[in-house]
């Protein structure tokens, strides 16, 4: 209201107030700025982590290593018999191994489930509540909105992985001895070097989920129901992992996005085996390219009637 009534003298005082005053009466269009462009990405991150749901998912992921740690601690005598999940035998010798055990347990089910919820809901959830139409008339720009959603999805992957890692380190340090780490290849490295490996592994695990983010985003552009998109994405993860266990399907298995997920164990050898890890990351990049393009093609051409 007030800007339309600014007197000419006040208008000429600064450039900013002149632009605003002329816009008030409907003259010049405003320019897009870098800060303005980036604002949606920041807003998207802020929105993701403001949701109670996100915090609850991260909480569940953080409880997992605590549970494993406690179980191993109670059953220490039997854990060295070679059964159970990967790396679990090493946990009682060195608490840091709880990180790898927890990641190996979380990666097939819990991590993709949380990522499926966040990625699947990204566009469909906004469509279901109607906020999508207000974002688009703001105008967010469909490509920019999709990019912001994808970025927030990737950051969530990292946050989810870190939730597991941090809880595992804390639990491991509390319940088990720390110290020199004996790798899977039998070599021994110092604690500092082992922590670097743990960070590296966490990064690889987070990136392993990027293909799933793209798939979830694509599914999210297909429907106006957040629940349907989440359920489909999580269902797909489970289906793909079942397919990965059929020996008859070994020809297509290298192309399943879950196939090389557990290859991060190769980084716990001396020297590190990068072949499968790189193959995994390459495959994730392929999935991001294919499903990212599909999501873009679908979203930029779709009628928004919700």
């Amino acid at each position: 209201m007030s800007q339309a009534e600014v007197s000419p003298a006040e208008v000429s005082r600064t450039e900013v107030s002149r632009t605003e005053a002329s816009a008030a009466v409907g003259a010049g269009p405003r320019r897009q700025t870098a800060a303005g462009f980036a604002a949606l990405f920041r807003s998207e991150l802020w929105l993701t982590f403001r949701r109670t749901r996100t915090i609850a998912l991260l909480g569940i992921l953080a409880v997992l290593p605590v549970l494993i740690g406690v179980v191993v601690r109670i059953e220490t005598g039997d854990s060295s018999n070679g059964g159970g999940p990967a790396f679990i035998a090493q946990v009682s010798q060195n608490g840091l191994f709880l990180v790898f055990t927890a990641l190996a347990l979380a990666l097939p089910i819990f991590l993709p489930m949380t990522v499926g919820v966040v990625a699947g809901d990204s566009i469909a959830g906004e469509a279901a509540t109607g906020t999508l139409r207000y974002l688009l008339v703001a105008p967010a720009g469909r490509t920019r909105l999709l990019a912001a959603k994808f970025t927030a999805g990737l950051v969530f992957c990292l946050a989810a992985t870190m939730a597991v890692v941090v809880a595992a380190v804390a639990t491991g340090a509390a319940l088990f001895p720390l110290g020199e780490v004996t790798l899977l290849s039998g070599d021994t490295i110092g604690l500092g070097a082992a922590v670097v490996r743990a960070v590296l592994v966490a990064g690889v695990v987070a990136l392993s989920l990027s293909g799933l983010v793209a798939i979830g985003l694509f599914i999210s552009t297909l429907t106006g129901s957040g629940i349907a998109a989440m359920a489909t994405t999580v269902g797909l993860v489970i289906t793909v992992q079942i397919l990965d266990t059929f020996p008859q399907l070994h020809a297509i298995q290298p192309f399943l996005f879950t196939h090389q997920w557990l290859s991060f164990g190769d980084l716990l050898r001396q020297p590190m085996h990068w072949d499968n890890v790189l193959q995994n990351l390459g495959l994730q990049a392929l999935y991001v390219a294919v499903f990212g393009s599909a999501a873009w093609a679908r979203f930029t051409s779709r009628d928004i009637t919700a």
């Binding site: 405003r30 897009q32 700025t33 800060a35 303005g36 604002a39 807003s43 105008p139 967010a140």
Partner: peptide
């Protein structure tokens, strides 16, 4: 924030 022309 959705409007890239608006000043943060």
């Amino acid at each position: 924030a959705a409007d890239p022309t608006s000043d943060p």
